[in-house]
Design a protein around this nucleic acid. Sequence first.
DNA 1: GATCTTATATTTGTATGAGTATATCCGGAC
DNA 2: GTCCGGATATACTCATACAAATATAAGATC
Lengths: 237, 237
Amino acid sequence: MGKAKDQPRPQRIHQAIATKLGTAILAGSYLPGDSLDGEIEQSLAMGVSRTPYREAIRILVSKGLLESRPKAGTHVTPRHRWNLLDPDILAWMFMGQPDKHFIRDLFELRGILEPAAAAFAAERRSEAHLDTMRDGLSGMKEHGLASQAGQEADRQFHRAILEASANEALASLSSSVGAAVQWTTHFKQRASKSPRDPLPEHVAVFTAIADADAEAARSAMSNLLHLAFEDMAEALR
Amino acid sequence: MGKAKDQPRPQRIHQAIATKLGTAILAGSYLPGDSLDGEIEQSLAMGVSRTPYREAIRILVSKGLLESRPKAGTHVTPRHRWNLLDPDILAWMFMGQPDKHFIRDLFELRGILEPAAAAFAAERRSEAHLDTMRDGLSGMKEHGLASQAGQEADRQFHRAILEASANEALASLSSSVGAAVQWTTHFKQRASKSPRDPLPEHVAVFTAIADADAEAARSAMSNLLHLAFEDMAEALR
DNA sequence: GATCTTATATTTGTATGAGTATATCCGGAC
DNA sequence: GTCCGGATATACTCATACAAATATAAGATC
């Protein structure tokens, strides 16, 4: 058990095309209102049959990126209809050059959600949640934030807090928050060779939650985010 | 212009099936881990071809409800992987008997998001946003919250605030918040014949935003939500 | 001349059947 | 008991044909 079996499952065609088109749209290669040409041409151009191409289109439609009607064709929808917090969409965004404004927005959202989540977590967390947080912290300490493993541990810590808030609506935002966390460390690493160690703030949050002190947890998390934002700020402007 | 042409576009088969299966899953007719039987049987049983059935499955997979692999079949995923804030999923939930716990969670999320959004809106709103809010308020006053039109006006008011926060990540949660608003009034109407008029609180929020007073907007919104929660509370337990 | 109605052409949507690829399952070898 | 390998069920892809719907343009009506 615990064997990290990362067999890279062969990507299905429909998934591959959805990813390809999704990243292109989010990168701005297609603008809202633009029209993709017909299924037959597109699928032929990509060397696949219409079946998986159409399935890819359905995926993008279901995430609000496209709309398609007979005779009218398939068009990119206005940006305000995109499900920007959908996990796939965030992942696709992360593949390209992310939009600075949106990262700021996402970070602002973190600033709203996570302190509140930490407060709830302090009141509602179980022992299992605390264990997961501990695992995350030790992972961060062991691997450091320069490594993949360390960043994953960081996300695990934040995810555990959202789950410990015992609120499904909050918890389902964990992947969105995770994406924000990822970008944060990304920019932080890029901005400085020897970035400040963020472990102390994280430990402070954990301690407050373990002590079941809601207000302490809230302000500790606010502090963590404030520091993280400062680390990231210069890269963002 | 302004002609409300609501030609009810004929529902496509794939969309109909996605809705059917989606509502069934959210209603608990299929439990996590359950396996749908094969494409051929299912599509035959529904009297449609495999093409739209498969497209429906793709939609549900893209929202995290299902996963499918050759030989293994198509299974309902564990609930924590569902994109619960996806607009379609919320709509599907609303079609059945909503889960009381989740409504509480959603309302709690509103309590976190909307005061913060109101504060941002007070600092960043444009004249156009204020106009939209005014429209919403007058719509609520004119039609009352018992009518469809009045409830739509209510949602419009709250949506305008999220949009005025000038934060795309927040704005993309407007449909989720809208669903919570909808449920709120739903339960409130059900609980009492002559429910309290919520207009004063709404006006107070609007005034604070129009005055560009962020802290006043935040507390006015908190107050609004507190009152709304009280109205709804008994129906929820 | 403007507006409603009617064709028509284009594009997506659905049907069907064959064939491929992949993961699970099971049996056998070590 | 563990590991390897083939049989098998299942989703996945392909190809083609047909149906439905709708934007556009042509025509009829006022």
